[in-house]
Simulated assay, not measured.
Amino acid sequence: MISVDEARQILEANTPEGRSYSLPLTEANGLILAEDIFTGISVPPFDNSAMDGYAMNYVAGQTQWTIRGEIPAGSGVALTVKKGEAVRIFTGSPMPADTNTVIPQEDVTIEGDQLICTKQGIQKGANVRTTGSQIRQGQLLMVAGSTITPGAIGLLASTGKSQVPIYTPPLVGIIVTGNELIPPGKALKPGKIYNSNAPMLEASLQQLGVCRISTAQVSDHYAATRQMIADFIDHHDLVIISGGISVGDYDFVKSALDSLGAKTLIYKLKQRPGKPFYAGLCQNKMVFALPGNPASVLSCFNHYVKPVIKKMMGKQRVWQPDNLATLTTAVEKKKGFTFFLKGKYQNGQVEVLQGQQSFNLIAFSEANCFIELPEEVERLNAGTQVATHFLYL
């Protein structure tokens, strides 16, 4: 067995490179940029007015001009404005040649064709957005690894970008093992239990932005298990297997993976829950085998599978805890194992919930995090700061 910290280091070093492709800008919200983006134009691309008002070639002390015409926003009309003349202009309208200042409409009066400025202290160059004052042509807009937000979409669109290179979420296959499992919704027969792991894993993947998910169930037979795993590795970027990874008479996952040439990276961890955890590489694709107990599945998914997927999607600092929080009560544990406890985080404090058994899901009705208790400690007093990992982030 290895420690949790060693497992994180191994997975960080062995996570395959995520795939990237070009996606329409309007579909990229929340995804991660795969390449640096440079602008091909300046923004604004021409000198334009920042206000509704009047444009002129302003000379200090001048207060009156002859109105020559107007330039609406979007107009491509070129007007020549002579000394002593002004033109009606609107926000975003291109500045005519030989004009340098815009006086807002509320600071003038009109008498016939004469424009009279009623405000003192007009500054030359006022209310003009010059070419490239926001972005210069060739400037770096966004660096690879940045999250594409609505604001970033607006920025990229303002430079004419319609497509962006993004990391694509992986195609994930889920295999659940067990003769005892039946789908929710069917009548429960003696000796059977409902399959809760598959829908729980699907929901967890969808929360990460993974939408291409295949799910299958396989019986506890070696040949069937091996064939199903082989098929899923061929057709997916990452495979998650639930159950069948321990050492029972009907646990065939590890031997099936070995026979397929998978390279074992991790097998068994000094942690609770989820000691019989497996991670490996097969055809340069990550394969995870999680214990069958539902709470162990969700714990192992959050601490190992989720960071790997987030890294494949271009995210950074995926192995760091989400927060530090103060324990509301004292906790005792067995030394030599890292414990991940279901917790409820609120206002900087975290409560250890009842129902910590690996088979018990009841605490997840109110849990919003896992509390990480270090391997080397046996007791943590109330008020101790502990690492927390949010369930829904």
Rank of each mutant, 00 (worst) to 15 (best):
N127M: 06
L140N: 12
I153L: 11
V128E: 05
I148C: 08
L140E: 07
S146E: 14
Q139F: 10
Q137S: 14
L156A: 04
T131I: 13
A157L: 06
R136K: 14
I148N: 06
L155R: 04
A157S: 13
L140F: 05
P150W: 09
I135H: 03
I148L: 14
Q134C: 01
A144W: 07
T131L: 09
L140A: 07
L156F: 07
I148R: 02
I148S: 06
I135S: 01
V128F: 05
Q139N: 09
N127I: 03
T147I: 15
P150Y: 09
T147M: 14
A157K: 12
A157H: 11
V128A: 05
G132V: 01
R136W: 07
P150A: 13
A152Q: 08
L141D: 08
G138N: 09
Q137W: 02
L156I: 04
S146H: 11
I135C: 00
T149P: 10
L156W: 07
Q139H: 12
L155N: 01
V128R: 01
I148D: 05
P150S: 12
L155G: 01
T149I: 11
A157P: 02
G145N: 03
L156Q: 04
M142G: 00
R129G: 03
R129H: 10
T149L: 13
G154Q: 11
G138C: 12
T147G: 05
L155I: 10
L140K: 15
A144K: 15
I135N: 00
A144Y: 06
G151W: 08
S133L: 03
G154P: 01
T149Y: 09
A157Y: 12
A144F: 04
V143D: 09
Q139I: 06
S133M: 08
G145I: 06
A152V: 14
T147L: 14
G151C: 05
G145T: 05
S158E: 07
T147Y: 12
A157I: 00
T131A: 03
L140Y: 07
S133R: 00
L155Y: 04
P150L: 14
I148Q: 04
S158F: 06
G138R: 08
N127Q: 12
G154K: 10
G151E: 14
G151Y: 12
T149W: 10
N127V: 01
G132W: 07
I148E: 05
G145Q: 05
Q137M: 15
G151M: 10
Q134L: 08
I135Y: 13
G138E: 07
T130L: 08
Q139E: 15
Q139C: 08
Q134I: 01
V128K: 00
L155D: 02
L141F: 04
S158A: 13
L141T: 04
A152D: 00
S158Q: 06
N127P: 03
V128Y: 03
V128P: 00
S146W: 08
N127G: 04
A144C: 09
I135M: 03
Q137F: 01
I148T: 07
G145C: 06
V143L: 15
G138F: 10
L140G: 07
S133I: 07
L155C: 02
I153W: 03
N127L: 03
S158C: 05
T147S: 14
S146C: 10
G154A: 11
T130H: 00
I135T: 11
L140V: 05
A157R: 12
T149C: 10
G132I: 01
S146R: 10
S133P: 01
T131F: 13
V128S: 01
